[in-house]
């Protein structure tokens, strides 16, 4: 299915958020996630099933003021 990953279309075979993150190379990285604008805690990623067109945000620490 096609997701919108950080604003860009992305094809994945994964069914859950946890699987999608692994497939996209985020495994083991310090990241936080949101699906369709709602925060998804790390411990809940396996339980979140993805659907066509879901908007996935993956963020990491960055410099800030």
């Amino acid at each position: 299915m096609t997701l919108l990953l950080n604003g860009e279309p992305q094809e994945v075979a994964a069914a859950t958020l946890a699987e999608a993150l692994a497939e996209l190379g985020y495994a083991g990285k310090i990241v936080a996630t949101a699906v369709n604008g709602e925060f998804v805690a790390a411990r809940k990623r396996e339980a979140v099933r993805l659907a066509e067109g879901d908007r996935i945000e993956v963020v990491a620490p960055m410099q800030g003021g």
């Binding site: 990953l5 950080n6 604003g7 992305q10 497939e23 996209l24 190379g25 985020y26 990285k29 310090i30 990241v31 936080a32 945000e57 993956v58 963020v59 990491a60 620490p61 960055m62 410099q63 800030g64 003021g65």
Partner: peptide, 27 residues
């Protein structure tokens, strides 16, 4: 120190991911 969050590129796709991880190590 103040810090922020920004989109992290998918490493498996672009090879450019990991900027945030390096910054977090520095902090």
């Amino acid at each position: 120190v103040t810090v922020s969050l920004r989109r992290e590129a998918a490493q498996g796709l672009t090879g450019e991911g990991g900027a945030g991880q390096a910054f977090w190590s520095l902090i």
